[in-house]
Write a protein that binds this DNA or RNA. Structure first.
Lengths: 363, 363
DNA sequence: ATGAAAGCGCTAACAG
DNA sequence: CTGTTAGCGCTTTCAT
C-alpha cells in the first residue's frame, strides 16, 4: 500500500484518520499528529505514566527533580490533560452544572460570581443555557450526561415536582426562587425585606401614596408583592396599597407605567419589580412630562448595571450576588461532602442603594 | 466486620464510597447505588453491552424486538449515557466550544442561535463564559481540556497572534470581529453596509447634518465609522461628517449625547454604534427636551430586544443572527469534515428596520 | 520515589 | 443480528 503525498491539509479529522490507518499495529501512533497524552510525556521524560499523572495533578509522591523534568517534557509537547478521561477515571468529577437564562443580565452577574466561588472551592462549572429555543429540561438533561455532581439552577421556572425529581438524583441548589420541598436547597434574597426597605425609605421621605409594579409570575414576584403590602401595613398605610400588574422586561414596566398614569389620585412614588422594568417605567414617566424624582419617586430591584448608569441613577434594592453565589457553591459542596446542613433555605438580606430617583413628595 | 446502620443519608459520596468499600472484590457493585451503566442495562435486558450501545446510539445493527427490550430496560433503570466515556472512546467528540461574554445581551442572542444550529448539525456545544473575573484566555483554556473539536469565539478581544496560535491547534471561527489572519475563519456582519443603509435612510428623509456616535475600540467600531464616512461621501456630504467618541454601553451613549448637544449647528440626526448606547442617547436627548424624532432622528445597531420595545421603537440596523450563527456552526463543521472552503471571511448583509425614531428634519 | 497493572463507561473491530 | 475483545487517556492501588 502506497500513500500519495497529501495535496494539502484538508481536514483535521483526515489527519487523525491517516495517523490511525498508518499505525494499525498495536504500537502507539507518533505523537506528532495526535494531541499528546500522558504516555507521550512519560516517554519524553523517561518516567512512568503514573508518575506523570502525579506531577500533573500536583499530588504528593514525586521528587522535585522528577517534577521539574516532567513539567518540561509536558511543556515542550504542549500537553493538556484530557478532562474527559480524567473524569471518567476519578470517583469524583468535581463538576457543578449551572443552568441560566442567557437573556437575563442578572443571571450574567450570578454566573460571574459562581465561577469565582467554584474556583475557590476547587470545582469546575459546566454551563447550560436556557434560550428561546432550548428549555430548562433540555438544559438540565445535557448537564446530567456530563457527570455533574450537583446542579445549580438560576431562577428556574420548572414545577416543584420536576425539581424534586432532580433533587432525588443529586444535590440541587435553586437560586433566587423559593421552593417548598424538603430535598431542594434554596439560596435567595429576602425579597420581602427588600421591598420593606424600599417602602421604609419612601415613607421616611414623606410619601404616603405609593404603588408597586409587580413581576407577574416571575420568581420572587409574589414575595415582593407581599413585602410591599406588609411594609405599608407596618406604617399604617395598608389602605393605600396599590399593586399594578407588571413583569420582568422594560416593556412590562412601560405598560404598567401607562396604567399608573391613569390612577387618581396619582401616587407620588412607585416601587418596581426589577431594574429592567423600572427602566421602562422611567422612560414612560419622563416622556409623559412627569419629573423623576420631583413628581414621582421610583425604586428598582437588583442593582443591575442598568441602575448604576449615571443618567439613570436608579434608587434600587441591591441583591448580594457575592453571597448568593458563594453560598450556592458552598451548599453544593457541603452536600457532596456530606457536611451537616441545618438550614435548607438560606435567605440573604438585600440592601437599599439610594441614588437619584427618590426624593420627598412635592404634591 | 460489622456495619452500623447508617444514621441518615449524609452524603452522596459517602454512599458511593460505601458501595465501593463493601465490594472490594472485582465483582461489580450492585446497580442500586451507582448510576446505571451500559452493563447494567445489558444485564437487565439479557443482551451484550455492545448491543445496548448500538441501541442507545440508534446505530444500525439490532432487531427491533431487541431494541424495544433494551429501551425498556434502560428506561426502568433510569439509564443515561455517560458523555465523558462516550467522548473518550470515540474518535470524534462532536463538541464545539463557544466563548461568550455573559454581560452582552447580543451574545445571548447569538448563543441561542448557535444551540439551534449545532443541534441541526448534530454537534454539541460547550459554553465558556467571559466574566469580569474570568478572561478570554481562561475561558478558552477550559474548553481546550474538554476535547472540543473547534472553537467559536464571539467578539473576542484577544490579539490576533493569540487567535492565530489557537487556529493552529484547531478550527477557529471568530464571530462579529474582523481578523486579518490566513487561518482564522470569520463570520461577521457587513458593518460598513449597515451604516451605509442607516445614512441612506437619513439622507432620503432629507437630513444633511448628521453625526455618528462610535463604539470606541469595540469589535466592529472601526468598520462602522468607515461606513458612516463612506456613505456621506457617496452623498456628497463628506464635509458634514461628525464623529463623536462613544462605546458600547448606555453610559457611553449618554456621555456622547451630552457632547452632541454642545455641537453647533446641532445635527438633525445621529447614528449610534449599537442599540445599547442608543438607549443612553435617547434618554439624554429626551431629558434635555429634544424631541425624537421631531428635533433629532436616532438610528441604532443590532436590533436587540431593546430596540423592539414599543416605548423605545428604535430605528436600527439589524444583524442577521440566524445567518451569523448557522454559518458559524456550518463553517466549524466544514473545517472538521475537510470540505473545501473558498471564503475565509463571510460578511453578512444587515438590514435596516425603520421604527419610530427617524423622521424628516424640521430644522 | 517509582513503576506495573487494573479498570472508569463506552465504542468499534471483528467473529460467529 | 449478536457477542467478544480491545482499548480511548487517565487515576489508583499495589509492588518494588
Amino acid at each position: 500500500m502506497r500513500h500519495e503525498p497529501a495535496p494539502a491539509m484538508r481536514s483535521w479529522n483526515v489527519l487523525n484518520a491517516l495517523a490511525r490507518l498508518t499505525h494499525m499495529t498495536p504500537r502507539l501512533g507518533s505523537a506528532a499528529s495526535r494531541r499528546p497524552t500522558l504516555a507521550d510525556v512519560a516517554a519524553r521524560a523517561g518516567v512512568s505514566v503514573a508518575l506523570v499523572s502525579i506531577v500533573m495533578r500536583d499530588a504528593p509522591g514525586a521528587s522535585s527533580a522528577t517534577r521539574e523534568r516532567v513539567r518540561r517534557a509536558a511543556e515542550e509537547l504542549g500537553y493538556r490533560p484530557d478532562s474527559r478521561a480524567r473524569l471518567l477515571r476519578s470517583a469524583r468529577s468535581r463538576l457543578i452544572g449551572v443552568v441560566f437564562a442567557v437573556q437575563h443580565a442578572f443571571h450574567g452577574d450570578l454566573v460571574g460570581g459562581l465561577y469565582t466561588a467554584a474556583d475557590a472551592a476547587d470545582y469546575e462549572l459546566a454551563l447550560s443555557a436556557v434560550t428561546p429555543g432550548r428549555d430548562e429540561r433540555r438544559a438540565v438533561t445535557s448537564l446530567l450526561q456530563d457527570r455533574c455532581e450537583a446542579l445549580i439552577l438560576l431562577g428556574p421556572h420548572a414545577p416543584t415536582s420536576y425539581l424534586a425529581e432532580l433533587a432525588a438524583r443529586m444535590p440541587l441548589v435553586v437560586v433566587a426562587r423559593p421552593v417548598r420541598h424538603r430535598t431542594v436547597d434554596v439560596i435567595r434574597t429576602d425579597d420581602i425585606a427588600g421591598l420593606g426597605q424600599a417602602v421604609d425609605h419612601l415613607v421616611a421621605l414623606g410619601h404616603t401614596r405609593t404603588a408597586h409594579i409587580d413581576g407577574g409570575r416571575a420568581p420572587g414576584a409574589a414575595e415582593r408583592r407581599r413585602g410591599y403590602r406588609g411594609a405599608l401595613q407596618r406604617h399604617g398605610l395598608a389602605d393605600a396599597a396599590l399593586i399594578l400588574p407588571g413583569g420582568l422586561t422594560e416593556q412590562d414596566g412601560a405598560t404598567a407605567a401607562r396604567a399608573l398614569l391613569d390612577t387618581h389620585p396619582l401616587p407620588t412614588a412607585v416601587t418596581v419589580f426589577n431594574d429592567r422594568s423600572a427602566t421602562g417605567v422611567l422612560d414612560v414617566l419622563r416622556s409623559a412630562g412627569i419629573d423623576v424624582p420631583g413628581d414621582m419617586s421610583v425604586v428598582g430591584f437588583d442593582d443591575s448595571r442598568l441602575a448604576r448608569l449615571s443618567h439613570i441613577a436608579l434608587t434600587t434594592v441591591a441583591q448580594d450576588t457575592q453571597q448568593l453565589t458563594s453560598l450556592s457553591v458552598a451548599r453544593a459542596a457541603a452536600r457532596l461532602d456530606g457536611s451537616a446542613i441545618t438550614e435548607r433555605e438560606l435567605v440573604i438580606p438585600p440592601h437599599l442603594i439610594i441614588r437619584g430617583t427618590t426624593a420627598p413628595p412635592t404634591r
